[in-house]
């Protein structure tokens, strides 16, 4: 099956085409990806770049089975361009589509880059959380906590399999917002609420690991210093500061195999409600 993913939710536009087997879906996966830094808007180049990716992969758009997009939170305009395109591709090709939450993509990306390390921790009885945080402007961050776990594998292959066991990441917390300056404090509070009793144990074992990723760490260097105070084993996943559409596609593949290709009405996902000032 062929999946086309567009991520235009940050200043780095990323487009990827992933081809994979229908059975072992992450096995023999081939990906053609392209990343492009924006100078002005994406509207000018997005079709030509999509064409380039498809051409490189020697796939015609008519052969695409699944269209997916980062549905935010992210830059308003960029995200909307991506959604508008993907929705309409799916409509005109009469194929299913998926809108994936931005934080799921960052977390998947971080898990991929650190799969070996995470699996080693888990098999040693330790725990690992992945915490993507993104800069949503006005000195606010949007973050979420995922915990990694291993299951007896059956379908998955490639990087995420260890001794026949498969690495999964589960969202354990709802999203939350905090000031960038107080990120660490709000993070700890939030973490406490979520993990309750487990928190002490989690933080007692300093070898339990935290993987941080997302644009917040590109925008606010100061957060890293705060993390050091946690006296905890932590990693800032440099390879997952900006989202890469390859991992958007992988998130979509997981969804595809979990839920089937349900007809989905993609809705943008915003970090906060928009409330205009009322004119008198």
């Amino acid at each position: 099956m062929h999946i086309l993913g567009i991520d235009s939710s940050t200043e780095k536009l990323s487009i990827a085409l992933t081809s994979c087997s229908e059975v072992h879906y992450l096995k023999n996966m081939r990906t053609y990806a392209l990343q492009y830094s924006r100078h002005s808007g994406f509207m000018k180049s997005i079709i030509a770049l999509t064409d380039k990716v498809l051409e490189k992969a020697a796939i015609d758009i008519e052969e695409i089975d699944y269209f997916c997009v980062n549905r935010g939170p992210g830059d308003f305009t960029g995200t909307r361009i991506g959604i508008s395109l993907i929705k309409t591709f799916a409509l005109s090709q009469n194929k299913p589509s998926a809108g994936i939450d931005a934080l799921d993509i960052y977390a998947m990306q971080a898990a991929y880059y650190n799969a070996a390390k995470i699996m080693q921790l888990l098999s040693g009885g330790l725990r690992a959380c992945i915490v993507p945080a993104i800069d949503i402007k006005r000195d606010e961050l949007f973050f979420c906590i995922y915990e990694a776990s291993l299951y007896e594998g059956h379908k998955c292959a490639g990087k995420l399999v260890y001794k026949n066991r498969e690495l999964f990441i589960n969202k354990i917390g709802n999203d939350s917002i905090s000031g960038a300056g107080t990120f660490i404090d709000s993070f700890k509070e939030y973490f406490k609420d979520l993990l309750g009793e487990h928190l002490r144990e989690y933080f007692e074992k300093q070898n339990n690991a935290l993987f941080f990723c997302g644009t917040a760490f590109a925008s606010y260097g100061s957060i890293a210093a705060g993390l050091r105070e946690l006296k905890h084993k932590f990693f800032i996943v440099k390879k997952s500061l900006y989202p890469d559409a390859q991992y958007l596609n992988i998130c979509a593949i997981y969804r595809f195999y979990k839920n089937g290709a349900a007809i989905e009405r993609i809705m943008p996902y915003y970090a906060r409600e928009f409330t205009p000032f009322k004119k008198k």
């Binding site: 808007g41 509207m43 997005i46 079709i47 999509t50 064409d51 758009i61 008519e62 308003f76 305009t77 909307r80 361009i81 508008s84 395109l85 993907i86 929705k87 309409t88 591709f89 005109s92 090709q93």
Partner: peptide
């Protein structure tokens, strides 16, 4: 601008894919 982009994105997607 924000409104135009949505329609133009959709139209380009149709033109390219069809």
């Amino acid at each position: 601008i924000g409104s135009l982009l949505v329609g133009v994105g959709a139209a380009k997607a149709i033109s390219y894919s069809k």
